[in-house]
Every structure is written in C-alpha cells, then in structure tokens.
Design a binder for these strands. Structure first.
Lengths: 246, 246
DNA sequence: AACAGGCTATTGTTATAACAACCGTCAGAG
DNA sequence: CTCTGACGGTTGTTATAACAATAGCCTGTT
C-alpha cells in the first residue's frame, strides 16, 4: 500500500502530504470500526513498512490522531484506539445532525406546532416586544427508535415565512429562509422529568434529565431561536473538549 | 544558555527532556510578557543555536506551544506569540476558578485523599498499566457556603510528587509540579444522586445531578487526570457559546 | 512611484540513525 | 507455584540532513 505524492504540472492540484494521507487512512479505519476501541494499531515500524514511509512520518501522523483523541499511546506497550469519542460539543448542530454524527438513526415526532404571542419569559429571553408573533414547535426525539428527549422551540415570527414552512426540520426551514442561527448561548443543568414529560418518554417520573436551554442568534445579533431541550440522563450525553489558557 | 540533562544516580529524580525544558523557558517568556503578543520569537535556527539543541528539538518544543495556543506559526514568515484567546466555556478551569469568575465564593472540603493501584476502568480510561500507582482525591464543593457538588479525581502517580503535595487545590499542586492538564475531553450527562451522595449534599435521594466526566491531558498527550464531578441540578449550571460552521 | 522578479530567510516535510525508557512475556530458580 | 530477571519489542528523544513551500525584502525597470 503506497501513499501518493503527486503535483500537477501547473501546480494547481496538490496531493496532501504523506503524513496527512496516512493520518486520514488511519482515521477512516478508526471511524469505520475496522479498528475497534482499545485495539492496538500496527506498530510504528509496521506502519512505516506497510505504507513505505519513515517512522518519523508515521509518528507525525499518529501525533495528530492522538491530539484529536482518536488514539492513545503508551511507551513500550503500543498505540491504541481510544475509547468512545464524540464530536466536539461546541459545534452548533441540530439534534438530527448530532445523532447522525454519532452513527445513530435520528427521528422526531411533532407534538405540536402553533403560532401565538410571545409570553413574558420568552419576550425577555429573546428581546422581543410584548405581543410579538412567535411560532412554537414541540417535538419528541428518538435515536434508533428509542426516546431520547423533548424539544420546545420558540422562533420569532419574522424568522420564518409561516408555520407550514417547517416540515421535517426547523433548522432546515430556517436555513432556506436565511435565518438559521449562527451563534448560540447555551445553558445546561440537571432537572427531574415531570409527570407529563416522563409519560411521553416512557420513563419513571422524577428520572434525571439534562436540560439544555439554547438561545440562537443571527449574524446581526438578532435572537432567532429559544429552545429548551430535555434529554434523558440514561440515554444522552455530551462530549466537549476544553483547553487551558493561563 | 544550555539546557540540562541530568539523572540522579538512583534514578529517582529526573530532569525533563530537552524539548520540555525549552518549552517551559519559552512559556515563561511569553507569560511574563518578555515576549509580547504578536512578537516574533527567535527563528528555529536561532533557538537551536542559542540553546545548543537541534532544530527538530526546537520544533517539538514549539509544536507544544502552538498546540496550547500560545504561539502561532506561519510558513516562510516566522513564529509569533498569539494574541489572547477569548474566555469561554471551553476554557479549562478548576471549580475554584469557575466560581470566582461567576462572582461566587468557593470553598471545598476534603472527603478523602488516598493512594492506591489503578482500577481496570481507570486504567483503560487513562491509558495506565494495571497496577500503576494513582492518587485519589474526593471533595465536596460549596459556593457561598451552600453545597454544590462532589468531585472524585484520580491522578497518575507520576503526575504528583506525593499525596501530601496537595493542600487546597489539586490544580495548583499540579501546576507547581508542571503536570497541570492543558487539554481535556469532557462528557456531561444527567444522573440521579444516590443515597450516599444525597446525604453528603443534604438533598433528597434521587435528586437530579449533572455528571461531568473530565479526562485531562498533558501537552505531550499523556493523561494526567480523570475526574467525575457531580453537581446539584438545582444549584449549578453551565453556560457555553456555540457557533455554526457550515 | 509602482510593479515585478529574484534572492534570502523562514517554516514544513521527509529521511536515516542511534539510543533511552518502558512494557510484556518467558524461562529459570527457589 | 511464585517471583525475579533477562530479553525482545515497543514508543520517546535527539541528532544530522536535504529539500519543498511560503514570506518578505530589495533592486531594477517601466
């Protein structure tokens, strides 16, 4: 198996560096589960021979995957596929996008769609005038057919053409209307599911849930969304990466 | 100016690698503002000559600082001190730092400190060999005198000089020892407090809690910390900012 | 005065090499 | 049967080296 090193005569098309190609090859093997969590990957010497590169090139490629959290190294023992890795939490995605990136099959069920006037809490949170038109969307979320949570979204009336413009996905409709939020503030805390919610989700009343309140904004700073998502504590978790800046 | 390479006869005290010493020297110059934001640092060749090491050693040291966000490189132009990074949720801070930034008065109570052998789950999570020495620190957290949560931390034995080196703050002790994690993967989910935990916190059994599992890493990728923090759902929340990258 | 090209200096990539430090396994001794 | 030590294999560190790719500055020409 060889990596390629090809530059077009006019220089307009370039092949990635050897170490980047090797990195991508390994990444594919990890994400497609050819290499399972906790498996040892081939040794540096074996990879160097297999791909016909030097050990230093292999190390540079593996360095990158270690940094991404996909691999973990132990001096003297080997290099192993890291246990479960999820996408970075700070990427702003919809439930659907989130589940797909986790290799799950997402689906949703509309609980209700309605138009009405903003309530005082929403008005404060979203910076709207009292009496403003808002659309409300309540959904139940599933992954692989199993209930995951409940979403209650409120969108200002001027961010959607109509209630009917939203079919499968709120973010898709907003994307088409040019009002998909590009920035959000999010607040997370643990809550207990009440009787109504627990009934919908098929879990005991009082079960722990993760409440994620999201306030989405347009590029010009206008609020475009307020969503409260309640996720089952036993079925949903968030991954994130932090860094220390002294 | 030379870096030292010194090993005690009994092997118990080791000098850091050349690249780590150079890294620390540069880090000090940056954080003490001897090198100001947007300044170019000496070239790789100049640093190699000044510290009497090879260019590859310089590159490895600078790699780490680039990764930490302290330096930024531009091919053909040079290496520059990065401008300050905005504070956000993704900033990796201790409970104390977090509370202070929220205008609260933090305090902690040690529940236990102990040394022992890593258990199988910790071994896998932290990439340690079975039987490795680890230090465990269990704490209860307060803000303004009110219980907020419980922390259970495990640190590899080689990341601290001793159990007694930790007084008020684990991160402070690690900072002094040069092993404070600079990057972390974090996983959040909602759980119910069990009887023991609820008793400690003075809340009803089964109350919802936010579990934050944090795996901290050193610049060279070695795991340095595994912490499970349980925060009361009614007293603690996390804020974050997301962005949408199409 | 502006633009283009050349040259020098910088970082990026890739190679070979040697040795240190750590890990795991196996064999031998008690 | 258990423990210890040796050995082979792994990753980590450091070095020298050559060339590619990018950036910036300076000089010459228009």
């Amino acid at each position: 198996m060889t990596l390629t090193k090809r530059v077009a005569s006019d220089g307009s098309v370039k092949t990635a560096s050897l170490y980047l190609q090797l990195q991508e090859s390994l990444r594919q093997q990890i994400t497609s589960r050819q290499l399972a969590p906790e498996d040892a990957i081939p040794t540096e010497r074996e990879l160097a021979e297999a791909y016909n590169v030097s050990r230093i090139t292999v190390r540079k490629a593996v360095d990158g995957l270690v940094y991404e959290g996909l691999l973990t190294r132990r001096q003297g023992a080997g290099t192993f596929v890291a246990t479960r890795v999820e996408k970075s939490y700070s990427k702003m995605s919809s439930f659907t996008e989130d589940m797909i990136s986790r290799g799950r099959v997402p689906s949703s069920k509309w609980l209700s769609k309605s138009a009405g006037s903003v309530n005082p809490e929403e008005a404060m949170t979203m910076g709207l005038s009292p009496g403003s038109l808002v659309y409300r969307f309540n959904r139940m979320r599933f992954a692989d057919g199993v209930s995951m949570g409940l979403d209650y979204s409120t969108v200002p009336g001027d961010c959607l053409p109509s209630l009917e413009s939203v079919n499968e996905s709120l973010y898709e409709a907003m994307e088409q209307f040019g009002t998909r939020p590009i920035r959000a503030l999010q607040r997370l805390r643990a809550v207990a599911f009440n009787a109504e919610q627990a009934g919908l989700l098929g879990i005991p009343v009082g079960s722990p849930g993760l409440l994620i309140e999201r306030r989405g904004f347009l590029a010009d700073g206008r609020p475009a969304e307020f969503t409260q998502s309640y996720y089952r504590g036993d079925a949903y978790d968030l991954m994130s990466e932090l860094s220390y800046n002294p």
